[in-house]
């Protein structure tokens, strides 16, 4: 049982160099792993490959032994929760409450259970007073908390969080860290946190996977003009 990346090779169609080459790693349930590395080294790219949003040119991703290329995104989504780097891009409902409910409805939970989880998570991330608000009208930090709440409420077996603390204040970072610790031990959830926040990584993560590729990778093709001149 693990979320494994095996010998991944990935290059963007528009890119000049490979972002990932022969990259392997495995993430275990019940473990909180940090994924770190310089800006532009390919962390976000890797998380998208782990979810099957991007397809690697070589290598494969195994989710508990099953090749992720053979699963639909929805099937992956039921076991792996994902919070994108830019929270604003992942919200699509007309109220905070509906945003929370969307995933839970798809899981086919009972009304009672849904209500319970929504209340718990809105309360925990201190969003209760925004329950009826339009998600686009929240501050960026609130949007990030909403997304975390919506994904955590689904209680997936794995979690991939792309810089979940970027827009959170110190206090909410602590809340998040403590909750992650809790679900890691209680639900044996495997968690991957992409982060530049050394304190957060040091305090809550058991293992750090450092992405190779130091500094900003030169990954962009020159424009046709430059090439021709």
């Amino acid at each position: 049982m693990a979320l494994e990346a095996k010998n991944l090779y990935f290059k963007y169609p528009k890119g000049k160099k490979a972002v990932l080459s022969d990259f392997s790693a495995s993430f275990l349930p019940g473990e909180l792993a940090a994924l770190t590395g310089a800006n532009g080294c390919g962390k976000t790219t890797l998380t998208k490959i782990l979810l099957g949003i991007l397809q690697p040119q070589q290598g494969l991703v195994l989710l508990d032994g099953r090749n992720i290329a053979e699963l639909t995104l929805a099937e992956v989504g039921r076991s792996v929760g994902y919070v994108m780097q830019n929270p604003a891009q992942q919200l699509f409902c007309t109220s905070v409450e509906k945003e929370m409910d969307y995933g839970l409805l798809n899981l086919g939970l009972s009304e009672e259970e849904r209500e319970k989880r929504i209340n718990y998570y809105l309360e925990y991330f201190q969003l209760s007073r925004h329950r009826k608000s339009f998600p686009f009208h929240l501050s960026l930090g609130e949007q990030q908390r909403l997304l975390l709440a919506a994904v955590l409420a689904m209680k997936p077996r794995y979690l991939i969080l792309d810089e979940p603390t970027a827009y959170l204040d110190v206090y909410r970072r602590r809340l998040l860290g403590e909750h992650l610790q809790k679900i890691r031990t209680e639900l044996v959830c495997g968690i991957i946190v992409v982060s530049h926040d050394r304190d957060f990584v040091g305090e809550y993560c058991q293992r750090e996977v450092v992405m190779p590729g130091a500094g900003m990778v030169e990954n962009h093709v020159d424009s046709p003009q430059r090439r021709a001149l």
Binding site: T72, A74, E75, G77, Y82, Q89, G103, N106
Partner: peptide
């Protein structure tokens, strides 16, 4: 992607 990852089957 977000919709599908929250469990909505489209494929």
């Amino acid at each position: 992607y977000a919709i599908q990852l929250r469990g909505c089957e489209l494929q």
